[in-house]
């Protein structure tokens, strides 16, 4: 008699038969548990949503009227035959790994995660489990992040140099999470931080839920941008080359992404600078996180899945690739906003 798994993989997403719910489903379902508010995980059209209290405001901001319930980190709820709890994933504010226990079998769906404390998101907390679902966006040994303190120094040195040269510094980053993390890294002594509307919208939501962010000013149509000196503008990557950016006059542009580790990608972006800042775990981070779960069965979703799973299998885990429609931090950053 074969036992039904606590979590299974379906064409709508990760499903729990005992609790009749999905985790981050990509097609409309009745009950969805959401790890975090990025668009490829929190989609529109589900009947009921469950997410952490900290993740809900952004989800409401993006998805509009939804039937949603909040849950605290570490709080356990029973859904059908499953015990469910949410635990920090360190990815963006409010992001969670979802732990599901059915008849003593423990699964953790980690969503997107990183192990370094970024000073903004609730820091990653490893969970012991039997089955661990991991991403592998940067699951190659060539990805190794520098400590955030070092990137902070480089970033501010770049901004200061732009400001001294009379140029506006344009920094491209995701509007949710990355942008706010960067704001906290920036030194406001250098100059004013301006924001694109997409970034400022998220800022307002996060501030309203009590997250402390440095002072920012949204760029508007009426603003006389040329009169603002020494500014840094935070914008989604897609806005960097647009006419919107052109009205600022002399400027330099940079991108903040894990992909900036690769010189080829950096050059192709045709921005001036690339800062290696990712909200995903690097190679070491992935392996450490997996090690700390104690899990023997690893399910590898988006990223370098084949390669990463093969490595895990050669090193004592039972790993398999699970196709998903999650995108992680996409290489094609023009499409990301």
């Amino acid at each position: 008699m074969s036992k039904i798994s606590a979590l299974t993989f379906t064409d709508r997403g990760i499903y729990c038969p005992a609790g009749d719910f999905y985790i981050d489903p990509w097609r409309p379902v009745d009950r969805a548990l959401i790890t975090h508010g990025h668009a490829d995980h929190a989609r529109w059209g589900h009947g009921h949503y469950l997410a952490t209290h900290a993740a809900l405001p952004v989800m409401r901001h993006r998805l509009g009227e939804i039937d949603a319930q909040g849950i605290g980190y570490g709080e356990t709820v029973q859904i059908g035959g499953a015990n469910v709890s949410f635990h920090p994933a360190g990815h963006v504010p409010g992001s969670a790994q979802i732990r599901v226990e059915v008849a003593g079998e423990i699964w953790v769906a980690s969503g997107d995660y990183k192990v370094e404390n970024d000073g903004l998101s609730e820091p990653f907390e490893p969970q012991r489990c039997h089955h661990f679902i991991t991403e592998s966006t940067f699951g190659l040994p060539v990805f190794r992040w520098q400590p955030q303190a070092r990137i902070t120094t480089e970033l501010n040195a770049w901004w200061a140099r732009c400001a001294d040269a009379g140029k506006t510094a344009f920094l491209g980053a995701y509007a949710l999470g990355k942008a706010q993390r960067l704001m906290r890294m920036l030194d406001p002594e250098i100059g004013p931080i301006l924001t694109h509307g997409a970034v400022e919208g998220t800022n307002a939501v996060l501030r309203a839920q009590g997250i402390d962010l440095p002072e920012t000013q949204q760029v508007t149509g009426e603003m006389d941008v040329k009169s603002i000196k020494r500014a840094l503008v935070l914008a989604p990557p897609s806005a960097l080359g647009s006419t919107w950016a052109r009205k600022f006059g002399p400027r330099e542009s940079a991108f903040a992404s894990g992909w900036m580790q690769l010189r080829g990608v950096r050059r192709r972006r045709a921005g001036d600078r690339g800062f290696v800042v990712s909200d995903h775990a690097d190679w070491r981070g992935l392996l450490d996180a997996i090690g700390q779960t104690g899990a023997e069965n690893i399910y590898v979703t988006h990223g370098y899945t084949d390669i990463f799973a093969r490595y895990l299998n050669e090193n004592g885990w039972q790993a398999q690739v699970v196709p998903t429609e999650f995108e992680g931090e996409t290489l094609d950053m023009d499409a990301a906003s």
Binding site: L140, P141, V142, L262, R263, G264, Y304, I307
Partner: peptide
């Protein structure tokens, strides 16, 4: 496997 992804 990593080499073609880095490209150099």
């Amino acid at each position: 496997e990593s080499y073609p992804i880095v490209g150099d």
